[in-house]
Amino acid sequence: MKGTLVRSIGLVVALLLSSAGIAEAHVGTGGSSGFLSGFLHPIMGLDHVVAMVAVGLWGAQLGKPAIWLLPVTFPLVMALGGFLGLVGVPMPGVEIGIALSGVLLGAAVLTESRPPMIAAAILVGLFAIFHGYAHGAELPLGENALFFSLGFVVGTGLLHAVGIVIGLLYQWPWGKVTVRVAGGAVGVVGAVFLWNAIA
């Protein structure tokens, strides 16, 4: 009797296991959390925040075409860095590069540096790769890739926009001082991170 009962239970379990479930891949769940975590990723790191804002500040300080060229090109170059981080290409000195970006971009805004456009673009592009790489290497598994990427890119772009909006103050005499002070603050934060990265 006991054996029959066990066999019956086994039969039921085996048949239940063979019953088809509902395929629910990508039905939309997790999209919002993926976007939010991607959006917060660049915003929650102070070293990234100050550098992104500094790019906007410097672009506004340099005027056209830098003010629109930087926000158009920076996300693409940063995504290339993110790609390198995602696929695991080794890149030494990432933290130092990120901290240096704060120091140098902040110093550029503070001193109102006006290098040739191509030099400014190369400098910013180089730092964009470092920042993108750090984000790419840290991206968590299990998130919706496209929603996360969207949030990440939008978050970074909005940080630039904050810098550009602050940089628009540059057209007034008191605004010039404000923008330069903001650049100095970025440089100080960058220096602290550089100290931590080297020490």
């Binding site: 629109w68 926000p71 158009v72 090109t73 996300p75 693409l76 940063m78 995504a79 290339l80 993110g82 790609f83 390198l84 981080g85 995602l86 696929v87 790419g136 991206l139 890739a145 496209l146 996360f148 990427s149 969207l150 990440f152 890119v153 939008v154 772009g157």
Partner: peptide, 18 residues
């Protein structure tokens, strides 16, 4: 154009994820 740039950036990251 910035929206275009963001779209391309998402594509590059998506490729990295894949």
């Amino acid at each position: 154009r910035v929206v275009g740039s963001w779209t391309a950036a998402c594509g590059v990251l998506l490729l990295g994820w894949a």
